[in-house]
Design a protein around this nucleic acid. Structure first.
Length: 377
DNA sequence: ACATCCCGCCACATT
DNA sequence: AATGTGGCGGGATGT
């Protein structure tokens, strides 16, 4: 039985739908459009129906490639994909001098105070004063830094295909046991997955497997694979969006069963916004990798997945009417969702949507079943 | 059994 | 002290 089982009853929990990659795509769909120039973390979290923590992950990674840059507490500048080239050049350059200095030993992590990682602002802002060295120990292990090194690894090498563990070794000390650092724990690899997920949703890389070894690997697509720039350039992306359907409508759905059957209704106390968002259509990584994308290059007929005008009206042909309606409703809902911090309202709103959704899913499912077509992967 | 990686606790940084 | 950030890794899911 392939992936999605016909959801017996309302909403089942599916891990895939909550992946960072998908979330990132949604994030992009939300902000990658004209007129956007600033992003509020709270807003993002609410609109996407996820915890704030996840937004940090995305934002930190995207910032490393110049798509975003921090403005202030809770605020980020939206720079768009146009910021990628410059960021990459910068990293490349950085990677260059680094190599010179550390002849032997590996290009492993820290040491060397390369702090000017986040320059961000194009105009001025160059190096921040008082960079000093050896101060912030926390940042040395940050996702952002790891991301930058991840990129450097690729752009300073001709090889565009690297296996996961090679990267892990390279980025996290080790490699033939350089002094100490035995902590190579595979634990850190989780971070690599995080990076890989958002990068692949941006099409900077592609998840694959090494030819023979079958080992998981990443292929660097670089700029060819990503949008040159320009927000909302989405032009073609037809055909991609139809399958969509096997998937739920998306995020939220309290993670696991959470034994407490007692609804949260008035018992919720924490931020755990059950809100569920629209956007059930967006390319599923697997589909993209296995079916659509033949090989690198976006060539044609395939755009950077995640970017859909967000108000994509069209959507399918006849008889999808239903789908479209939901889509519309969801689209309508999100913008007017809780934009003000008010837990009660937020939750209430979320439940309404949940109700709508489960109803819809049920109906749609029924319809599809009799149609006997579940074009999933 | 092994590969992925969600989830959220809680330490550390800023306000 | 309160709130914003974001390491970190347990353990659920996917294959």
């Amino acid at each position: 039985m392939s992936s999605l089982v016909p959801p017996g009853d309302h909403c089942f929990y599916s891990r895939k739908e909550k992946s960072l990659g998908v979330l990132c795509s949604n994030f992009l769909k939300l902000y990658n459009r004209d007129g956007v120039d600033s992003i509020g973390l709270d807003d993002a979290a609410n609109r996407l129906g996820v915890e704030r923590r996840r937004i940090y992950d995305i934002v930190n990674i995207l910032e490393s490639v110049g798509v975003l840059s921090k403005k202030a507490k809770n605020q980020y500048f939206w720079r768009g994909f146009g910021g990628i080239p410059k960021a990459l050049d910068m990293l490349k350059e950085e990677a260059l001098n680094e190599n010179l200095s550390t002849s032997s030993s590996c290009l492993s992590d820290y040491n060397v105070s390369h702090d000017y990682l986040y320059e961000g602002l194009p105009t001025s802002g160059k190096d921040k004063p008082s960079a000093s060295c050896k101060v912030d120990s926390r940042k040395e292990k940050s996702l952002g830094l790891l991301t930058q090194n991840f990129i450097k690894l690729f752009i300073s090498s001709k090889a565009d295909l690297m296996t996961l563990d090679y990267i892990a070794k390279a980025l996290l000390g080790d490699i033939h046991d350089p002094t100490a650092m035995r902590n190579n724990s595979a634990a850190k690899v989780r971070r690599l997955y995080d990076i890989a997920n958002v990068f692949s949703s941006i099409n900077l890389i592609e998840k694959t497997h090494h030819p023979e070894s079958r080992k998981p690997a990443f292929r660097w697509l670089g700029l060819e694979g990503s949008p040159k720039d320009g927000p909302v350039t989405a032009l073609k992306f037809n055909e991609i969006k139809k399958r969509v359907f096997g998937t739920e409508i998306t995020n939220s759905l309290p993670k696991k069963y959470k034994k407490e059957s007692s609804l949260d209704w008035n018992s919720n106390k924490k931020a755990d916004t059950p809100v569920l968002m629209r956007c059930n259509n967006l390319i599923d990584e697997h589909d993209r990798n296995s079916l659509l994308q033949p090989r690198k290059h976006t060539s044609n007929g395939f755009v950077f997945g995640p970017f859909t005008p967000a108000s994509v009206a069209d959507l399918g042909h006849s008889e999808n009417k239903n789908v479209r309606q939901v889509q519309d409703l969801e689209d309508l809902a999100s913008p007017y969702g809780p934009r003000y911090r008010n837990q009660a309202l937020t939750d209430l709103f979320g439940h309404y949507r949940a109700a709508w959704k489960s109803w819809y899913v049920e109906a749609a499912e029924k319809k599809h079943i009799q149609k006997g077509s579940i074009l999933n992967s």
